[in-house]
């Protein structure tokens, strides 16, 4: 199989029901927005390959159902994620408060070394805003996670968010490889197409094989 990318990153979108996870993903993968989206049942993913510092990075982005009841199913897909977008809705206080629960959920179900980012979505709806940007920033500082407000509708910061998360994963991966491989011959171990079919494990362990 001809390799069409240098890296494959598995990312995950989580957050309360209706915060706009699917819309963010749709904006990023199709550059479109649809006011009347349907709710996500179960799990789905979309693919977009981006160019990052001269490397082709294939992003496989998983979209999950937000309602708490489905968490036993959706957390099964956490394993193997390299990056997680935690999404809340700036017009919904509760979804912001729940970010802490989602972080706890990640700690229990995802790899410890997963990269994270907090997104405050729907920032175009300023008149309905319940959560200020400052509070979002404060939370991010508290957890030492990057943060940005987004609008899937107005296409604000969505590209930036995914590129930032992907770049952080790439940097972390390359750093880890340098540490474990004193004489890299090709400038980093690369994930292969068939890796995506393997059992999801800690993504770092995939890079080092054993």
């Amino acid at each position: 199989m001809a390799k069409t990318y240098d890296y494959l990153f598995k990312l995950l979108l989580i957050g309360d029901s209706g915060v706009g996870k699917t819309s963010i993903l749709f904006r990023f993968s199709e550059d479109a927005f649809n006011i009347s989206f349907i709710s996500t049942i179960g799990i789905d993913f979309k693919i977009r390959t981006i160019d990052l510092d001269g490397k082709k990075v294939k992003l496989q982005i998983w979209d999950t159902a937000g309602q708490e009841r489905f968490r036993t199913i959706t957390t099964a897909y956490y394993r193997g994620s390299m990056g997680i977008m935690l999404v809340y809705d700036v017009t919904n206080e509760k979804s912001f408060e729940n970010i802490k629960n989602w972080i706890r959920n990640i700690e229990e179900n995802a790899s410890a070394d997963v990269e994270k980012m907090i997104l405050g979505n729907k920032c175009d709806l300023d008149s309905k805003r319940q959560v200020s940007k400052e509070r979002g920033e404060q939370l991010a500082i508290e957890y030492q996670i990057k943060f940005v407000e987004t609008s899937a509708k107005d296409s604000l910061n969505v590209e930036y968010a995914f590129f930032t998360l992907a770049r952080d994963i790439k940097a972390k991966m390359e750093k880890k490889q340098e540490a474990s491989n004193p004489a890299p011959r090709t400038g980093g171990h690369q994930l292969r197409a068939n890796e995506q079919q393997r059992k999801p494990t800690s993504w770092l362990s995939r890079c080092s094989l054993l």
């Binding site: 029901s17 209706g18 009347s36 349907i38 709710s39 509760k94």
Partner: peptide, 22 residues
């Protein structure tokens, strides 16, 4: 309140492409 908010969110995204709900 939580239930009501969930219902509202979902009603607004149920079969909206069908003329009956569009």
């Amino acid at each position: 309140r939580d239930r009501k908010s969930l219902v509202e969110k979902d009603v607004n995204r149920t079969d909206r492409t069908h003329p009956f709900f569009a």
